[in-house]
Design a protein around this nucleic acid. Structure first.
Lengths: 113, 113
DNA sequence: ATCTTTGTTCGTAATTTTACGAAATACGAA
DNA sequence: TTCGTATTTCGTAAAATTACGAACAAAGAT
């Protein structure tokens, strides 16, 4: 039995989304996009004191993970949440977070390590 | 203005949790713990065809991120969700996921890149 | 046609992650 | 104490991540 067969597709996708969110700058960007519509890369570049190339890399990460999408509004690019995938990420996370058998959860009462 | 002052503590914590979930094996473990109470590292080791040391490293990641905790039940260790932090992770994620001004969201209608 | 603005790609370097097997540790059982 | 079980730590190596500045590309403005 190989590891790839044991881990479900949903688990892989959730890990993919989580990984994309696994950096403060990318959380910041996602939060901005969640709360205040779309934004331009340049706006982010002004707010965040990081190199443009670094920001570009982070945006690419989010884009490759499917969490955001950019649309050309020459000469700028406007970035927005990819609502469909973002909803999927939420669904995957929330589904995992809510146990199917809540009554079966045991309490941990021994020494914590 | 430094990057550390711009990114909020909540954003950093969310990134930390997301990073910990950013690997399929760790998602698998968290999902297992969410759905079926606590479990022993050995059980995971049997199900997942990876080296025990590798699994141990993944568990350590989850533990360091605060998502799980282990209790000694000699000679084994029983792992459980850290409910408090897990709830915080959910809260941080859900709060981010739900925009404060949903009506202000613009539609993206230009060419997607 | 050239300039300017915007953003990506390239080259590079430091750090982190992932993975393994071997060795070490902890501890109950014999 | 010695043995066996369960798990972590160590040493190592390959790959990925993060970050920067310089160079490059696209496209509207002059």
């Amino acid at each position: 039995m190989k590891i790839k067969e044991i881990i479900s597709e949903d688990q892989k996708r959730l890990a993919r989304y989580a990984k994309a969110l696994g950096h403060p700058v990318r959380v910041y960007v996602m939060q901005l996009l969640s709360n205040q519509a779309c934004c331009y890369s340049g706006d982010l570049s002004e707010e965040l004191p990081i190199a443009k190339s670094t920001l570009s890399q982070h945006l690419k990460e989010l884009k490759d993970a499917g969490l955001i999408q950019g649309e050309i509004e020459a000469p700028k690019i406007k970035y927005c949440i990819n609502k469909e995938n973002w909803a999927e990420a939420q669904r995957l996370f929330t589904t995992m977070a809510s146990p199917k058998k809540p009554g079966s959860l045991m309490n941990c009462q021994n020494k914590t390590v």
